[in-house]
Amino acid sequence: MAKISQRTGRGGGSLALACAGVMTLGVLLPLLMMVTISLNPDEQDIMVSIGALRSFIPEVVSLQNYFEVWADPAHPFLRYLGNTLLITGLTLLFSILFNSMAAFVLAQGTLRIRGPLMILILASLAIPAESLVLPQLIMAGWAGIIDTYQVQILPGVANAMSIFLFYQFFTRLPKELIEAARIDGFSFFQIFRYIALPLSKPVVSAIAILQFLEIWNAYLWPVMVTRGPEHRPLSVAMSAYFSSNLQSWGNIMAFAVSMAIPAILFFLVVQKQFIASVTSTGVKG
């Protein structure tokens, strides 16, 4: 797995530092504005000063917008957060369990239909999820699972990419290791459970982080399959809040900050694995 080291590259110098400064401003100014506006309880003042310096540097610090957002009965923020966490957690659990098992059989098993199955998996990698949403919606209607958690979890679990990443890892396991375990009397499942799966921790964390990002950004599918706040995830809630509170910028920005903070905290905790996961999809090895 590719790692981004702390190794010193070339060409440091004041030009690079100046460019880094410009990049930081470009990223942080919009975020600074989001935070500043979210702390200003006076909507009229926000409207008047929206492009001025004081929409970037807080003059008043009030949490009133936050209390309004968190207590809004039409948009239960905590419920949305819980929905997102539940959908993410269950998707990851089943995706990692089912796809690692299947990948282990494909990589180490002796099944006849391995070849055709691999072709099926690689082919489904080429299908963009967006082109499947309409028939999936009709099928969800047939199954009677519109506006549930299941309907938001299933598409993430049926994940060819996840099978493929595990498959790549399991084919590279040393033969001697598998052989030794077999001689020690391990069954095929036990080899998977006690040897292969524990060794695949980097793949597990890569899949966990990539799928987290996917669910965190999911929009088209949850917009189509949720009907109200009960099962709606945060990403869609942000958009719904945005359209139903148009012009209440203080509250909209407080909603945005409330969403940004858990993601940034999560990143700070798993920073190393996060960077490795993103780059592992890009660089071989």
Binding site: P30, M33, S235, V236, I252
Partner: peptide, 13 residues
């Protein structure tokens, strides 16, 4: 790390 909907709200401002 910011969901696209949050980014869109920020840029709307």
């Amino acid at each position: 790390l910011l969901p696209m909907t949050v980014v869109a709200a920020i840029w709307a401002v």
